[in-house]
């Protein structure tokens, strides 16, 4: 009898603890190259130089290997990370960048709308990405619906449900 209760209690703790733990720990994002945002920004590059579609499309786009090779076809530094770019290019592959921010499937988000029309700064939603020397493994900004709405209300943007939900 007592043994059953103990096993039951332990099972409940394991299940509840496991669920809570899994919720807190989203899988960390590992990038194929330890890209240094701060260094590129310091060279005078804009975000849109590599995230090419940020002004025209709903998505911002991750840089293609061709974009990287425009500068890195010849070594700029002795960094082994930089060498990886040429290795990907030699293999004729794209760079398998991992997405850091993922919108839920029912959210319609347009970079074009926010960047080109509303002139929102990149760091408003992406935080201090420009100062990052290594790719962050988790989003720098916790993007929740109340967080979206707070800004929409402040800027008097639409808070109609179908403006953002698809």
């Amino acid at each position: 009898m007592l043994r059953g209760v103990v096993i039951g209690v332990v099972a409940v703790i394991v299940v509840v603890g496991g669920v809570l733990f899994a919720q807190r720990l989203e899988p960390a994002v590992r990038q194929p190259i330890q890209f240094n945002h701060a260094k590129h920004i310091a060279q005078g590059l804009e975000c849109a130089a590599c995230h090419q579609y940020v002004k025209e499309q709903t998505f911002a786009g991750l840089p293609t290997v061709e974009t990287c090779m425009m500068c890195h076809s010849a070594p700029q530094t002795k960094s082994p990370e930089e060498e990886k770019v040429r290795q990907f290019a030699e293999k004729g592959q794209g760079i398998p960048w991992q997405r850091l921010y993922r919108m839920p499937g029912h959210v319609f988000f347009s970079h074009r709308r926010h960047v080109s029309v509303a002139k929102v700064e990149c760091q408003t939603c992406h935080g201090a990405m420009a100062q990052a020397t290594t790719p962050p493994s988790r989003p720098l900004v916790n993007q929740s619906m109340s967080w979206c709405l707070a800004c929409h209300e402040k800027r008097q943007a639409s808070v109609d449900c179908v403006a953002c939900h698809k």
């Binding site: 839920p104 029912h106 109609d160 449900c161 179908v162 939900h165």
Partner: peptide, 15 residues
């Protein structure tokens, strides 16, 4: 499900 300001009846699936 609700009617938006432009008269389109929306359906918000997560809700």
């Amino acid at each position: 499900t609700y009617k938006n300001p432009e008269g389109i009846v929306g359906q918000i699936y997560p809700r």
